[in-house]
């Protein structure tokens, strides 16, 4: 059951009671989100149906293609910053050419998926939470349930599928744009020729970096969608509630991206 009844709990008596209730709510909310994800994964069997495919492609377009602009700008500047920072240090040893590997490896491993995750959490996650929150508040989700259309299959599954595909793609795109940005700084500020830069970048990049980065991005996509959908469905109390859900969704996504990103890096390196 996605649409939830309003809840009421009598005011607790003391500090410990409030803390305990908070902890329980936290557990229950995260449990709800996990169950939502599980149920969405179970609903993935419908992904090959034509009507679902149409929806998945639409979501991919909305999330992926429409975020390209901001992602490009952020990626290029991330690469430029990385190159400049590393370059200024390396210049002291006359080793500026190593910015190629520095930018490439850090973009592939860390910054690519990380930046993509943060941007998608900020623009896609918040939009998703707001949309589903508004739908919940205006009883559209309840209407779907009454028509016996499972909101998880109809709303969550296409979003998760779309984001699981698009986030790695966008992360890869971020990496490329970041490397390009680093190259621009290398050429203009640090006297590193484009060829030398790319050679250096290629020499040091490993396939493992790429795989782990893309896997990370995939997880980020799933996390962003799950958290945002959960927060959207948990919306109560009208327009104010939508604002609260959106804010919570973005914050929780950011935290998860940081924590999970660390775990993945730690597990693979």
């Amino acid at each position: 059951m996605i649409s939830r009844e309003p809840e009421y709990f009598p005011p607790s008596l003391n500090y410990y009671g409030r803390m305990g209730r908070r902890a329980m709510f936290l557990c229950r909310d995260s449990g709800h989100a996990v169950l939502l994800l599980v149920s969405a994964i179970a609903n993935l069997r419908y992904v090959f149906e034509k009507r679902s495919q149409k929806e998945v492609f639409m979501q991919m377009y909305v999330f992926g293609v429409k975020s390209l602009g901001v992602i490009t700008v952020v990626a290029v500047f991330t690469g430029m910053i990385l190159a400049l920072q590393a370059g200024l240090e390396l210049q002291k040893f006359n080793q500026q050419v190593y910015i190629g590997s520095a930018v490439m490896v850090s973009m592939l491993r860390e910054m690519g998926p990380f930046m993509t995750g943060l941007i998608l959490a900020a623009c896609v996650g918040s939009a998703m939470a707001a949309q589903l929150g508004t739908m919940t508040v205006s009883e559209e989700v309840a209407a779907l349930e009454l028509m016996s259309i499972d909101p998880v299959r109809f709303l969550v599954m296409p979003r998760i599928a779309a984001m699981a595909i698009m986030t790695p793609v966008l992360a890869f795109y971020t990496c490329i744009m970041g490397v390009v940005g680093g190259g621009i700084v290398g050429m203009t500020q640090l006297d590193v020729s484009w060829v030398a830069y790319i050679e250096n970048a290629r020499d040091f990049a490993e396939y493992k970096d790429l795989y782990v980065g893309l896997f990370k991005a995939f997880l980020f996509g799933v996390i962003i969608t799950t958290v945002s959908c959960h927060e959207g469905f948990a919306t109560t109390e009208g327009a104010v509630g939508v604002g609260i859900s959106t804010r919570r969704a973005v914050i929780i996504c950011f935290l998860y991206i940081l924590v999970v990103g660390y775990f993945i890096t730690r597990l693979f390196y």
Binding site: M135, S138, E139, A142, A143, L146, S148
Partner: peptide, 19 residues
Amino acid sequence: LERARERFGYLFQGGALLA
């Protein structure tokens, strides 16, 4: 539940149309 709900048509306050 699905069978029970199929007996019903429900007109929501705001129409609850998908935007």
